Simulated assay, not measured.
Amino acid sequence: MEKCKLLIAEDVATVREALCKMIDWPSLGVDLTGAAESGEEALELMERNVPDILLTDIGMPKTNGLELIASVTEKYPNVKCVILSGLNEFEHARQAIRLKVHDYILKPIDPEEIQHTIGRIAEQLKRERSKQEELRAAEQKVRERLPILSERLPDLAISGNVKKSKLVEQALSTMIAGFRSRDFSLADVAANVGLSEKYLNQLFKEATGVTVYACLIRLRMDEAAELLKEPYAKVYEVCDRIGYADQDHFRESFKKQFGVTPTEYRNRFL
């Protein structure tokens, strides 16, 4: 997995050099991408290579650490910011909380504390990335079961309706992410895309040949079919996992899709 990228901003040369050399960053799964001597230089470096973590001093001239964090939070909201400062004052801590700073380390620098703090953040980022990769893999697996939708979307874009294609793609991604929820509906998809339910349904059918509701049922039934391939799968558990409250309704929908009941389908794999 790709290493987490760290950028240091510290105006005192001896401290900056110590931060670079005293800690074995690679052993933490961290790639030190730069060490800026000012807030301005840090922002310039970020334009070329956005880090995952920013470790910055507060008391820098011109653009101080809090001002730097404010700019970073606005431009790069996913960057986790850590303050390094000898200014043990309530006002700075209060501003840091308001800026949603991830952590606050006081000088004089303690290599072990910095290593522990940055290492913990790096581990958190790795877990988040791993989860995102799992979600992407799960989404891709679902998409592979909907070839007709995936095939028609590029045709919509090629025909010049790029904006419509993106809206439909966004709607489809929303459904793939949320269809397992019992309360998930057309209203949730429309709200996420920013369209009225009527127009979204019309647009979605134009692009894919099916309504949002029909696609939602297809997603749930295909997921149920995958789950039922497990020999010891219980029908009522599968029903619950795909967002159905009523087993009879689930059974009817499944049989309409596959021509057999969930139990009969599962028994094929015993």
Rank of each mutant, 00 (worst) to 15 (best):
T263D: 11
S181N: 10
L54F: 13
R180I: 03
L186A: 09
L43S: 02
A137T: 09
I105F: 06
A224W: 07
L172W: 00
A177L: 03
L19F: 02
M221E: 15
D188I: 03
E151M: 10
M46K: 03
E226L: 13
A138H: 14
K163S: 11
T174L: 13
Q115W: 14
K163E: 10
K62E: 06
V235D: 00
S85K: 05
T73I: 05
I8M: 10
P26W: 14
C215T: 15
E40C: 06
L106T: 15
E226F: 14
R136M: 03
L66S: 06
A207H: 12
E139F: 03
E223Y: 04
E264N: 08
G119Y: 01
V15F: 04
E134I: 11
P154W: 10
L28T: 00
K229S: 07
V168P: 07
E252P: 04
L219N: 01
S130F: 12
P231H: 10
I83K: 02
L6G: 04
L28D: 00
V15D: 12
S27P: 07
K166L: 08
D188S: 04
P51R: 15
K62L: 05
E74Q: 13
N161S: 11
A137K: 10
T63G: 00
E226P: 00
C215R: 07
G65W: 00
N49G: 03
W25S: 07
A225Y: 01
A187G: 08
N267F: 13
G34M: 07
Q115S: 15
A214S: 08
Q132S: 06
A35L: 03
K75W: 05
I97H: 08
D110N: 14
P147H: 12
S165W: 04
P111I: 05
E197A: 13
L156C: 06
N64F: 06
G243E: 07
R143G: 04
A245H: 09
L200Y: 04
Q115G: 14
Q247S: 08
L216E: 02
I83P: 00
C4H: 00
R266A: 03
V189P: 01
D222H: 15
V260K: 12
L28H: 00
A122C: 15
G29T: 06
I109A: 05
S150E: 04
L55N: 00
L203C: 04
